[in-house]
Amino acid sequence: MLNIENLHCQVETQDGEEKPILKGLSLDVPAGEVHAIMGPNGSGKSTLSYVLTGRDGYEVTGGSMTFEGEDLSELEPEERAALGLYLSFQYPVEIPGVPTITFLKEALNAQRTARGEDEVSAPEFMKLIREKAKQLGVSMDMLKRPVNVGFSGGEKKRMEILQALVLEPKFMILDETDSGLDIDALKTVSDGVNALRAPERGMLVITHYQRLLDHITPDVVHIMANGKIVKSGGPELAKELEAEGYDKYLGEAA
């Protein structure tokens, strides 16, 4: 489903210099599987999520990334979204003045239009969002507020998953969705993610800690260090990391 081959990516820093971050990353996530990426801070996990979704300033300088056979690097962010690529942001963005409900309806209908599907009517949409909000314990009151404005870290993460439930993407990238969540919220959010597990859907779960993977059991765990995947294995790899830390991989990657 998602195929990444020897991907190299650089960002432009604030002083206008090119900084290589991904240095030959390869990864395949077949439909129906959940893969976890674990790695120390600064190893390039968020960079991977941005280059996959097409953020400005993240330039592919080598290798390839395809989604269901389509070359992603040629597509605009909104085109990738319409293909079904969804990023749950590590730091969800505040959009003052745009109510969450309005935003989500715009997004859903824009994606549907791009795929040649009919728009969802206002009553249909309200029914859909009520149902999903209930599932995630989000009040309708919160949905009327501007996107992420004044929400706590945990509420923002909850909203990211709510948006995924409404948009039903084919592939989800969760970038540190567990950070900022207390135990109860972690459970609710994980239940939301697990509800989206399906044979036709892939997921890439980026995390720093084992604890999210206690709730969302991955099929494969990858360890990322210094812009590359340095080791892959089963769920037990995450447990091993928890016990031993990243130190031994940092040496290998340098």
């Binding site: 979704t53 962010p77 909104e78 979204a81 969800p92 935003f103 715009e106 997004a107 859903l108 994606q111």
Partner: peptide, 15 residues
């Protein structure tokens, strides 16, 4: 706000 713009486009809203 370029960050907000990217966030919206990531959700499928054309630029």
């Amino acid at each position: 706000d370029e960050t907000a713009l990217f966030y919206m486009r990531q959700r499928g809203i054309p630029a």
